[in-house]
């Protein structure tokens, strides 16, 4: 009896965790899917009217993906380097320092990074509101996440294995290639996918450093501004009176959610690979 009551109590507590996201997702699909159509995804951007209510979304999709890929390309090598430093050469004190720093950085609100980016990259370095600025800011945001993840992945490899490989005379490079990577790659890729999802959903820090509302289809260079799905939703949602722009906002939301969900699902599929 007592146990059953406890079970009911736990279920009541857990229900919102299940129902709220499900309801949100359903509502987004309900509103967004009818607003989607082929022309909106891939139509020519010249149909844009003077106020920028572009009815095609591919520039936004491209912008979001470009920002995400750039951020990962910048952050992943740094995270890998940091991980190897941590695992191979760092002293106990350096390890503590590195981890402490990363935990601190994870906790800083993204908008603060946006502000720093605005001051340093946009104004001081004269990069302007640009794709590159956005990539760098997003890279800095996902870096601590990636680094903590890969350090954990390496730390989970039993030390006996590493020691056995070293005792057999494997060099650091061989140790990494033949012992660490085969054991840790699913965790490393999982971390990267989650980092990509994070870069794809971060909005505030790129709102005033990398993106504009409209007028850009495909950026000419790293120094041109872009449009992105996440900021597009923000701009359109502010024009609440205009029924069409709200529709486009919902459509953008569906695409964004689909992209992020695809990344998260691949990540959890890989986590299962790792367990077997």
């Amino acid at each position: 009896m007592n146990e059953r009551r406890a079970k009911t109590f736990v279920i009541i507590l857990a229900l919102p965790a299940l129902l709220l996201p499900a309801a949100c997702l359903l509502y987004i699909l309900f509103k967004g899917v009818p607003a989607l159509d082929w022309a909106m995804l891939f139509g020519s951007s010249e149909a844009a009217d003077a106020f920028g209510s572009v009815t095609t979304l591919w520039p936004q999709i491209a912008g979001s993906l470009l920002l995400m890929l750039g951020a990962c390309l910048l952050a992943a090598p740094v995270a890998l380097g940091g991980t190897l430093f941590y695992a191979l050469t760092a002293s106990a004190r350096q390890r503590q320092g590195l981890l402490g720093m990363m935990h601190l950085l994870v906790g800083i609100p993204p908008i603060v990074y946006g502000l720093c980016g605005l001051i340093v990259l946009v104004h001081l370095l004269h990069w302007g509101i640009s794709l590159l600025t956005g990539m760098v800011i997003l890279a800095v945001i996902i870096l601590p996440m990636l680094l903590l993840n890969s350090v954990n992945a390496i730390a989970r490899i039993p030390s006996e294995k590493t020691e056995a490989a070293r005792a057999l005379g494997l060099s650091h490079g061989q140790l990494i290639r033949r012992v660490w990577l085969p054991a840790a790659w699913p965790a490393l890729i999982t971390g990267l996918l989650l980092g990509m999802a994070r870069a794809l959903s971060e909005t505030a820090p790129i709102l005033f450093t990398a993106t504009v509302f409209s007028g850009v289809a495909w950026p000419d260079s790293l120094f041109s501004p872009v449009t992105s799905l996440q900021t597009h939703i923000f701009y359109l949602a502010q024009e609440g009176a205009n029924a069409q722009s709200v529709d486009i906002a919902w459509a953008s939301a569906v695409i964004l959610v689909a992209l992020v969900t695809a990344l998260s699902f691949s990540a959890s599929a890989l986590r299962k690979v790792r367990m077997h």
Partner: peptide, 19 residues
């Protein structure tokens, strides 16, 4: 040191095999 470790075979207390 890698060459030294190949010359001096060490068999650890806890067996650790590779997958």
């Amino acid at each position: 040191e890698d060459a030294l470790r190949r010359t001096v075979g060490l068999i650890a207390q806890k067996p650790a095999l590779f997958p």
